[in-house]
Amino acid sequence: MLTGILQETDSGLYACNVPGTTGRLRRACVGIIGCGGLGSNAAVALVRAGIGRLILADFDTVALSNLNRQHYFLPDVGKHKVTALAEHLRAIDPTVHLDLHPVEVTSESLNDVFNPVDVLIEAVDRAETKHALIHAWHRLHPDIPMIVGNGIAGYGNTDTIQVIRTGTIIYCGDMISESRDGLASPRVLIVAAMQANVALELLLEGNQS
């Protein structure tokens, strides 16, 4: 019953989507490594857009200091991020298929957690981990795109945030700022939305239905 109401083409959840895109997005699977500022907000954008399946991984729990930029709320503090995020995503669309992994993803476990995906969003915090995961993913799946968040700190300077496309590795961010400079919600959300938007673009390339 609920599924039917959500999927009504003229009044349902996705009635305002770009015509002809919803079917393809419902069949798509996007992986997200890290459910912090980038990952949690990208996940919300993707579920609202109509993505049918997400694979989410994060070893961490929600801390109060996360709430200035991450898509969590006071009652979430102390919960695993993937668990709390799943509740919020299902509150948007209870029919979305979610695979939850409350683990730290390494180069060794990357393939086990994110196989298969159509697109992978990289949203971890540590630069060393990002670097290792970019190379590991490219060795494993050179033809499956990875969308990397790179440079999200500070405030203002919106026009320095960009997308750089290098083969199947695509970077979103200002390519300069470090999280130790301080993190504010707007720039983090901009980059998260850019990552989600690039994912849609890739998934809908040559869209026919």
Partner: peptide, 9 residues
């Protein structure tokens, strides 16, 4: 392309 990777996610 030479991209410097930065902390933040």
């Amino acid at each position: 392309r030479a991209i410097h990777i930065h902390h933040g996610g």
